[in-house]
Simulated scan of single mutants.
Amino acid sequence: MTTSNDPLVKKSNGFRKFLSWFLIIAFLGIGAFVYWKYFFVFGEGVKSGYLNYAVKKGNLFKTYEGKLIQEGFGSAKAGVGISSNEFVFSVENDSIFHMLEVNSGKFFDLHYKEYHGVLPWRGNTRYIVDQVINMK
């Protein structure tokens, strides 16, 4: 029979306390990392250009994707030459996607949010368009 003065009981209680605190801190750390990676809005802004395409695609999760061709030219890589500036994005909202889909080729000002990571049900890119500001 063991008593509360037994050294084995004290070691066992100390290890349990350490383990429980370690697990709590680990879960909080993992939760904070997941929030930062997938749900924290890293940046937001507006991109303008001509809508090249808007499509619904995906194997398991059907997501809305689009590409905006921005005016001007830039170099994708040093020494490669001139290429057009492209903004590839995803859309979560059905009504925004349908507006883009029927107006392909027009000039748009799109408000977007940028995340650190990609969730498969949110889209294929880190850039999520959440508002059409202007269409010409």
Rank of each mutant, 00 (worst) to 15 (best):
G74V: 09
F15H: 10
F107I: 03
N124R: 11
V34T: 15
S83N: 09
S20E: 04
V9E: 09
S4V: 12
E92T: 06
L119S: 10
F40T: 14
I133E: 12
N85R: 12
R122F: 03
G45V: 07
E92M: 09
M99S: 14
H98D: 14
S12F: 08
V9S: 07
V9I: 15
V34H: 13
L68W: 02
E114P: 00
A26D: 01
G105W: 02
S48T: 13
M99C: 03
D94M: 00
N13V: 09
G31E: 05
M99N: 14
F15K: 14
I133K: 14
F61T: 08
K56E: 15
E86R: 02
P7N: 01
L110W: 03
R126M: 00
V55I: 15
F40H: 15
M135S: 08
K11Y: 05
N5P: 02
G79P: 07
H116L: 11
I133H: 03
K113Q: 14
V132H: 03
Q70H: 06
V118S: 07
K136V: 07
L110C: 04
F27H: 04
G74Y: 09
F107N: 10
Y35M: 03
A26Y: 07
G105L: 00
S75A: 12
F39E: 11
D130Q: 01
G72N: 01
F87Q: 04
Y38K: 05
F89I: 11
G105V: 01
F27K: 02
S95I: 13
V129M: 06
F42S: 05
G81F: 08
N52P: 00
L100F: 01
I133R: 12
Y38I: 03
F61A: 10
S75N: 14
N103F: 04
V55Q: 14
V9T: 08
F39V: 02
N134Q: 15
G66V: 00
G117E: 04
G58M: 06
N5H: 14
R126H: 05
G29W: 03
D130A: 00
M135I: 15
M1K: 14
E71L: 07
R16S: 12
V55C: 06
V88H: 10
S95M: 10
